[in-house]
Design a protein around this nucleic acid. Structure first.
Lengths: 206, 206
DNA sequence: GTCTATAGAACGATAGAC
DNA sequence: GTCTATCGTTCTATAGAC
């Protein structure tokens, strides 16, 4: 049993984590600029000045929210697009895990997507580079499939961007109250993405 | 030659139109709450108080920006999804026109998507209803295709939402500096959407 | 139709006691 | 670690002259 938190993070249940969690919900609902320190403090149940014992500024809270949610997923899953081993099956697996992970982290992901410009330039650039590497890995993997004859996609770059738009869009409309679980929706998207957008037949090699 | 502006709009080049155009660009770049009346006035070249001669409030400017950009497209194109006449070909045409129109109106569309919650409740609800009718028309049309045997989509609702996410995502990554025109990207999306996501073969009837 | 001037509220952040 | 109190800024919006 390994501590799932990276080194440097405080134990769960600390004030700092509580502030991050509450602020992320508020930012997702009313936007970063639409939520003041007074509103955050009030939701936490403390006075505004107390927040500054845990964070040096409001932007520092935003940094902690966005931090590396997306990067962590990308770093852990890029191997599925490795040109030497990528298959239609590994692509389906990646789409499925992508949809599920992004839904599970939907609040931080929504804030990270919407408030990217509010981040410090250095951190925003870090996030953009990470996303770019994921996108490029998809393009490269699709090109491998086209060269190998098992993916008939016309334009790998456009296909990759269309595929990512499709699966990133799930959070905008999916609701847990509906008849389908997020895992079912994820599987359907894997099918629509790889068999549909990329044109890879389910029974085709590899 | 008919006046393209709906009745009630002032002639082009008026201060009101100038303010709407400048404010929409600023809102798209720095968000509604991130842009003050001073910034808008400064960009227009007047004093802040002068804006209030043309608009009763900042929210009134946002209303004028969003107004009915999306509704106008939907109202003019719903006929292409009419259950009695819809075909794979009319779906492809709609996707193409959708992508091109949304790109041409990308500034207002971006503001309308991002700042929907800043709108007055009544106007926000009007926009949501309009989008919902478009979505429902897509679902219904796909169901017709499934019933008719010319679309193998598994789940019409999920397929419609995936398709719309895909084509609405174009504005997030397309840049005119690239090698493809928006019309070319739109055509490729029509192919990926109808042949790919919905599974309709190009040569299949109708 | 645009100006100067400013009201009144909310903002991010700090000082210093406990 | 949280409090009270508040500083200085910025915000939307208005009053009234020209």
């Amino acid at each position: 049993m390994i501590d799932p938190e990276p080194a440097g993070a405080s134990e769960a249940g600390g004030r700092r984590e509580e502030i991050v969690e509450i602020a992320s919900r508020l930012f997702a609902e009313r936007s970063y600029r639409g939520v003041g320190m007074r509103a955050i403090a009030s939701a936490v149940g403390v006075q505004p000045a107390s927040i500054y014992h845990h964070f040096s500024s409001k932007a520092d809270i935003l940094d902690a929210i966005i931090a590396d949610v997306t990067e962590r997923f990308i770093a852990a899953h890029l191997y599925l697009l490795d040109p030497k081993f990528v298959t239609a099956s590994s692509m389906r697996q990646l789409v499925t895990e992508h949809v599920v992970y992004f839904w599970q982290h939907r609040i931080a992901e929504a804030v990270g997507l919407r408030e990217l410009k509010e981040l410090s330039v250095a951190r925003a650039e870090h996030v953009r580079r990470s996303r770019r590497s994921y996108q490029d890995a998809w393009i490269c993997a699709i090109q491998v499939g086209v060269s190998g004859g098992w993916l008939p996609a016309q334009n790998p770059r456009i296909a990759a961007l269309a595929l990512l738009s499709m699966i990133n869009g799930v959070n905008a409309w999916y609701r847990e109250a509906g008849p389908l679980s997020i895992a079912e929706v994820a599987e359907m998207h894997a099918e629509m993405a790889v068999t549909g957008v990329l044109g890879g037949c389910p029974e085709a090699p590899p």
